[in-house]
Amino acid sequence: MKLLITGGAGFVGTRLAQALLARGTLAGRRIETLVLADQVAPRAELLADPRVKARTGALLAQCAALRDEPFDGVFHLASAVSGECEADFELGLRSNLDSTRALFDALRATVQHGAPVPRLVFSSSVAVFGPDAAVPLPPRVADDTLPAPQTSYGTHKLMCEYLLADYSRKGFIDGRAARLMTVTVRPGRPNGAASSFFSGIIREPLAGDEAVCPVSANVCHPVASPARTVEGLIAVYEASREAFHGRLAMNLPALNVCVGQMLDALEEVAGRAVRERVRFESDERIAGIVANWPKAADAARAARLGLKPDGSFTDIVRQYIADCEAAPDGAAALKGLAR
């Protein structure tokens, strides 16, 4: 089979590609070609695999050529993130809405020219939920909670969910949307997401650097480790349409935690000195965005697919440390960890 991952050189895209290549099969079929489309080239170790092909450049510019390249399956991860969408409205529309519709239309063209209908997983977000005066946000958002996004990013994700459902209804794609929780701990440099600090307050102290937390310790939010996120994307792809019971958008499992609990876990694993590298400094812009996000989430439908949340945030911290220890250049990421 031939697969496409948009955003395939990003953090989640890279982890997903590695998992698929290690498995060798998806939904009972052998993976022969894995195309990674992104604005930057994939890692060298991925390109060394003869099954991997790269498509480098803006997705919107690539979609015309994709009309002549049928795929059996697609993971659509490419997106401008929350902070970017708030800061640059046009960028958000172009990267999230325009590119998604262009991708769906490219896939539709291949089907209309006789190719099989591709299965597509769209990475949506818990940001589709938000407070609304008419429909108050519940303590935990569930699959049947009314989406009411209060950010451009969440609005784009919800609009793409509706597009996916309509293209699927028409038979142009076999679509399903996985609503990702905030993925932490992400390695590397902070990105433009408003949620970036959820990784930064763990990542930077472990590297020996100071981290600034822009919200209070009482702020709570649903999160998931990279491993659980990739596991969820693959399970959503492999699930039958009947397993969705009609609706194509599904919450992935969440570990519901508060910032203070995250720091408690960091201290438990790495010690008090590492925790003390985090200082609180309010950022009204970030705090305002986060205030409109869910405090916790449930994922009953994902549980029926066998998916589970992380056991604890301590487990997530330990997973991040283990990942760094296994990486060739991971020592620098842990130079602040007392042994």
Rank of each mutant, 00 (worst) to 15 (best):
A332C: 03
V185G: 01
L26H: 08
R186C: 13
A254I: 05
G28L: 07
V219D: 00
K295S: 14
A227L: 11
A265I: 09
G24Q: 10
E325K: 15
P309D: 03
D174S: 13
L263V: 04
A332Q: 15
E268T: 14
K170F: 06
V183A: 02
A211E: 02
P139C: 10
L337R: 11
K157G: 01
L120P: 02
R140Y: 12
G10R: 13
A54Q: 12
K295I: 09
V81W: 13
V135D: 14
G83A: 03
R169E: 14
G288V: 05
R119W: 01
A338N: 11
E161H: 07
R247M: 14
A227H: 09
V257P: 02
E231F: 06
A303M: 12
G10E: 10
L334Y: 08
A299P: 10
C324S: 14
A194C: 12
K53L: 15
R108V: 00
R301I: 10
N96W: 05
R241L: 14
R179D: 04
G28Q: 07
A134Q: 15
G192T: 01
L77Y: 06
V223Y: 01
R241C: 08
L36F: 04
A133C: 04
P190G: 09
A142F: 00
R186D: 04
V111S: 06
G306C: 07
Q39K: 15
L206Y: 06
P42G: 07
K157L: 06
D98K: 03
A207E: 11
A22R: 14
A194M: 08
P118I: 10
W293A: 07
L103S: 00
